[in-house]
Structure formats: C-alpha cells, structure tokens
C-alpha cells in the first residue's frame, strides 16, 4: 500500500500529473502579449521611429542621448523621490490601520468599510476628483486660502506638487495595504498577546515585540507591491500635474509617455521604458533576495 503513503516525495502518486498542455494556452498568451512586447521594446530602443512609416535601426544613438541628457538624471531622481515618499507615507498608515482594523467590533468594521472605498475607484477617477478639489481658483484652496497659504496654488512648486502626488497616492493605495496588514494581523495567534500581557508588556511594547515581527511577511508583500506600483505612477501624474510644474514631477513612466506619444520619438521612449523594466526587475529582485521573500514563497509553493 505504498500508494497511499503521503510523504511529500510521492504526493499525488497514483494519478499521472497533468501534462504541459494545460499550461500551453496561458504561456503562449503571456508570451505573445507580454514577453514579445518586451523584446520589441528592447529592439525599438535601438531604432528611430516617429509613428509613421517603419522603425529604422540607429544603433545605440538613443541610449547615448539618454545617458548624456541631464534632464533624464533628474527624471530618475524624481522617480526615486516619488516612490520613496509614497512608501514612507502609506506604509505606516496602512500598518497602523490594518492592525487596528484586525480587532473585531462594529465600529472598526464600519470604518474599514468606508476606508475601503478608494480602492474601488479608478486612479483616473481619483485623480480627476482631487484635481477638481485642489483647483487653485475653483476648488477648496480658493475657499480655505488661510490653510493653503498665499495663492493656494499647490501645483505651482515642485515640493507642493510632490506632496499632492504622495498624498493622493496614499489616499488611493493605503486601503489595499491596510487589507494586507489586516489579513496578516488576524493570523497572529492570540496566545502571544496573552503571554505578553502576563509578562506585563504594554500595548506599545506588544506592537513592537509581537505584532511587527509577526507581520514581517505582510510587510514585505506590501513593500514589493508598493515599490513596483509607485515606481510606475502614471495616471495620477498625467491628470494631476501633467509632469509639471515645468517637468518637476516628470517620472520615468511619464517621460516615456510624453517622449513617445507627444513628441513621437518612440525609439527614445522605448529606451526610457527599458530603463524602467530593468529598474523594476532589479528592485524586486533585490527586495525579494534581501528579505528572504523567495524562500518564503518557495516554501509555500513547495518548489
């Protein structure tokens, strides 16, 4: 009766495993609509193409221009700033809210239900909403000019425009990260807290010595999704600031869009997109490796 033994090595023993054919449709589809575009992107970055006619090979010209362009270094810097700001603001908020919401009770359920709403709205809807509310002449700053100071034009300076972007992105994404932490916090065994209470540990101490370490995996998940998401912020920038004032909030994704679809330098735009892919992959790889997330998933996968 070895067939009934369920040691990991012979798991699913009797049945022949399903063949590769089951994976073929998804793999082929993904290859055609995601992998091939990536290859085409890399190829386009070595061509010049204006959208009319066919791309012409120009070697490394786009790359040389991109590397030499001081504006592109500023764009990379802005990308980093916007990403870091988003993570630094939304992670603590969602962590606190998630842990708080994990506790039961009617109030918490209602508050969570309302705070969840932004997650349902498209980033376009959210950006349009905030653009309207923050309009210097016809929105809230016009009404509460004391609060916003001076002209109330929050889109006029680099730092205030970045604050707006950070705030709106926290408004939009904190609910999702809250959910991650809420799920994680619910899974923490209550015994740990009971033991801590017997030891006389206060709430704050419990948070740092039990909750936080136990939420390690949730934190890593939230960070990876947050970083890759913020790195490629686009809709919000297009609608809220149009990369302005004067390019001061133009990140790599927005630069890719304007270079390609507004200035018709698709070769250069592709080079910028390639930088974006490389950066996103490297950062994910680094985060995954340095946090041991891959070991965590491979345990889960059993691969």
């Amino acid at each position: 009766m070895t067939r009934l033994s369920s040691s990991p090595a012979t798991r699913g023993g009797a049945m022949r495993p399903p063949g590769l054919g089951w994976a073929a449709p998804a793999t082929l589809f993904f290859a055609v609509f995601a992998i091939i575009p990536l290859i085409v992107m890399a190829w386009l970055s070595f061509t010049t193409w204006s959208g009319i006619g066919s791309p012409a090979f120009v070697g490394s010209e786009n790359w040389e221009r991109l590397v030499a362009d001081p504006a592109f270094q500023q764009i990379l810097w802005i990308t980093v700033v916007i990403t870091l700001a988003a993570i630094l603001v939304q992670t603590p908020i969602s962590l606190l809210l998630g842990v708080w919401a994990a506790g039961g009770g009617r109030t918490r359920a209602i508050v969570s239900a309302i705070c969840f709403v932004p997650l349902l709205l498209s980033s376009a809807a959210i950006a349009v909403l905030w653009r309207g509310l923050l309009d210097p002449n016809f929105g809230i700053p016009g009404e509460l000019s004391d609060l916003f100071g001076g002209s109330g034009n929050v889109f006029a300076s680099q730092w205030s425009a970045i604050i707006v972007l950070t705030f709106v992105s926290a408004w939009q994404y904190a609910p999702f990260h809250t959910l991650i932490f809420q799920g994680g916090a619910r899974a923490i065994p209550a015994v740990l807290y009971q033991a801590a209470e017997i030891d006389g540990a206060g709430k704050v101490r419990q948070f740092f010595s039990i909750t936080l370490p136990q939420l390690r995996n949730s934190l890593i998940t939230s960070l990876i999704l947050g970083v890759v998401g913020s790195l490629t912020t686009f809709d919000t920038i297009l609608i809220l600031t149009r990369g302005g004032p004067g390019g001061a909030t133009t990140n790599t994704a927005y630069f890719m869009y304007t270079t390609g679809f507004l200035s018709f330098d698709f070769g250069m735009g592709s080079a910028a997109a390639t930088v974006l892919v490389i950066a996103a992959s490297l950062i994910s790889f680094f985060l995954v490796r340095s946090t041991g997330y891959d070991r965590m998933t491979s345990e889960k996968e059993g691969v």
Binding site: T27, F30, F33, A34, I35, I36, P37, L38, V40, M41, L44, W49, P55, V228, L231, T232, F234, A253, M256, Y257, G260, F261, F266, G269, S270, A273, T274, L276, V277, A280, S281, I283, S284, F285, T297
Partner: peptide
C-alpha cells in the same frame, strides 16, 4: 517566468504594444 512577470510594469510596454 510568470513570477518574473510580476516585475514588468504595464507602463513599460505601452510603446511596443501600441506598435504591435
């Protein structure tokens, strides 16, 4: 390969997808 796909931002392929 699909796991690696997690790191591909949609924004990056806008131009090649438009082309294709």
């Amino acid at each position: 390969v699909f796991l690696l796909g997690l790191a591909i931002p949609v924004q990056a392929v806008a131009i090649p997808v438009f082309y294709l």
